[in-house]
Amino acid sequence: MAAKKKRAPNVQNDSWVVIAADSAIHTQKHDRDADFVKLRNPSTDAACLYMLGCGDAQLYEVKAFEEDFHSWFVGQTVQRDGRLVFVTPMDPLFLILPYFIKSGKEAKFQPVDQVVTDEEFPACSRLLSCTRSLASLQHIAEEKEAGSTKFHRYSEEKTMNWLKKKVERTVVALKRRNISVGEGVKSTTYVRVKSEPDSHEEDYLRYAHGLISEYISADLSRALLKHLELPELLSPKETEPPSKKRKLSDNPVEAGEDYTKFNSADFVRKPPKKMTAAQKTLAKVDKTGMKPMSSFFSPKVKAEKN
């Protein structure tokens, strides 16, 4: 009925619909406004948007709800993207952790500001101003005090215990929120009415581990899985039989058959191979009055006059 509509690209807009806690944008107490900053995502290692509250006191993660066919009516205007941005509090330690792991390879005690530096994301040093940051470093590192300065060294054991606690607390939150964690039909349109009774403790643990893994590197995620004593699940991809495609190799390509042998004198034609069912039926077709295909390409033979 209607003509096909073309989809224009979503142009950058200068306003957003955001849900944020009052504390995130409260400006009276501090001299520094809340600020969107790009930092390294610990899970993907790529640039990702975060928000630092006023005076860098608190870290917030930024997530967007995005679905097709949505738009906003804002006052007397239309906002084309139906995006809803959530700004939610986040533990800054997740973002600090990768820097400690990196410097942990040197196995030295170091002052924090030497550890948390990043040429690509200079804003990362602001993470240390967050109220929780310095106090919570003890969860992932050993501390030494010399004079008035503190020195830290990454500890995997401490980190694992800290992450395990995070997982356990997530499990509690999942249960309280009645979030369905079992392997069911994964549908986006079906709302699960009740939590399945057969959701076992392991399902909760695995789900929580998956959620926490969104905030740590893949290596750490695997280590955490071991620490939680959960067996690694094989993805269906890995259980599939290997592809039948021929493997490419570095060896020079050689002809599979030596065609020169047809030229030799002692070459004898092999008896014709067995015909397939289709070829057999074709052979049975009545061909009277049909010219061979090749006749169409050869020079015309003048018809003899009688």
């Binding site: 993907t44 948007l49 993660e61 997530k63 679905e67 941005v85 994964k186 959620l211 969104e214 893949a218």
Partner: peptide, 20 residues
């Protein structure tokens, strides 16, 4: 292939942003 967002987020259509 290397990173698949957890279904908690994909089911809720939530994604991280790299810019506003």
């Amino acid at each position: 292939a290397t990173h698949q967002t957890h279904r908690f987020f994909t089911e809720r259509r939530l994604k991280s942003l790299d810019a506003l």
